[in-house]
């Protein structure tokens, strides 16, 4: 799968899994930070993103500390997913 396609899928999955009712997938900037200012996600959302990767891509993040870098933005998540799928 191409990175662009992964990005598109991730945006839909994030909105759905994290119940971001007031956000449309296409409104998410792939390079904007997911936590803090950007989408304003918190620590429970981070744990939920770990589940999202497991469920949809069969990718297991063992070390929660590793998650921080992977979940910087939708772009970094997509890059990580692409690298694991190869």
């Amino acid at each position: 799968m191409e990175v662009q396609e992964i990005i598109k899928n991730l945006k839909v999955q994030i909105v759905e899994q994290l119940n971001l009712e007031e956000v449309k997938p296409e409104d998410i900037d792939a390079n904007a930070p997911l936590f803090g200012d950007g989408l304003g996600l918190d620590s429970i959302d981070a744990l939920e993103l770990i589940v999202l990767l497991e469920k949809n891509y069969e990718i297991k993040i063992q070390d929660p500390k590793e998650a921080k870098a992977i979940f910087t933005s939708v772009q970094t998540m997509a890059d990580y997913v692409a690298s694991k799928m190869k």
């Binding site: 994290l18 119940n19 429970i44 959302d45 744990l47 939920e48 589940v51 497991e54 469920k55």
Partner: peptide
């Protein structure tokens, strides 16, 4: 089997 942290909390 995917227990969800945002449900569990």
């Amino acid at each position: 089997y995917f227990p969800s942290p945002s449900v569990f909390v």
